[in-house]
């Protein structure tokens, strides 16, 4: 390659570089619109295990009981163990290998339903989060914060994790210790 050819190549390459730099600026679409604080507040419903983002309000299992019977029992059963939908209480899901009826229980049980919320979920805050966003199944998001606290309290009470007249709020909900917390681990196979 002659010197003039080399110069030409370098010039050509630098033109390309300039062009691609210009492109990089054009490529950034920047079509997002700023979110206001009020908009964020309105949709910030994720509750964290340490209680971050729990709203004001409170409730007791005693208050939750009536609401549960009206809005929840038809799917989850009178005491949260009968179903037909997800079991909320009890350890029925963990079929012991010493259970003589283990095979029969496995065969008769819908695999989706065997584990109860009380046995499987590691944090009590998740109960509040899920009831508020997704329940009742046919009318999600229709409950007030006090109602959600009361139902959360009732589900915890069904699992013997709190007493019936304990007032549950953002202050003490994160402190309710779920049996699964000690057993829960993050999978190591995440690439």
């Amino acid at each position: 390659m002659s010197l003039s050819e080399l110069t030409r190549h370098i010039l050509f390459l630098s033109t390309l570089l300039i062009a691609s730099n210009a492109n990089a600026e054009v490529m950034s679409a920047n079509l997002g619109t700023p979110l206001t604080f009020a908009e964020i507040e309105r949709f910030s419903i994720s509750v964290y295990p340490d209680g971050e983002n729990l709203p004001e309000g409170q409730g007791t299992a005693e208050e939750g009981k009536m609401l549960y019977r009206q809005r929840c029992a038809m799917c989850h059963g009178k005491s949260g163990t009968e179903g037909p939908s997800h079991r909320l209480a009890g350890s029925v899901g963990l079929f012991s290998i010493w259970d003589p009826l283990r095979i029969k229980r496995i065969m008769e049980t819908n695999g989706l339903l065997v584990m109860s919320t009380g046995q499987q979920w590691p944090y009590a805050t998740t109960v509040f989060d899920f009831v508020r966003r997704a329940m009742p199944h046919t009318a999600p998001k229709s409950l007030t914060s006090n109602q959600v606290y009361a139902l959360t309290a009732y589900i915890l009470y069904l699992n013997d994790l709190i007493i019936e007249n304990e007032v549950i709020s953002r202050i003490n909900l994160p402190g309710v210790e779920m049996p699964a917390a000690k057993r829960f681990e993050e999978a190591s196979r995440q690439e």
């Binding site: 994720s46 699964a180 999978a187």
Partner: peptide, 25 residues
């Protein structure tokens, strides 16, 4: 956030008695 599905339905019970969550791939 430990959402409902990552706390319950989409976890696995290990033979060791541990519960494995966030098992993505």
């Amino acid at each position: 956030a430990y959402t409902a599905h990552e706390s319950g339905l989409y976890t696995e019970q290990l033979a060791s008695g541990r519960i494995e969550g966030f098992s993505f791939p």
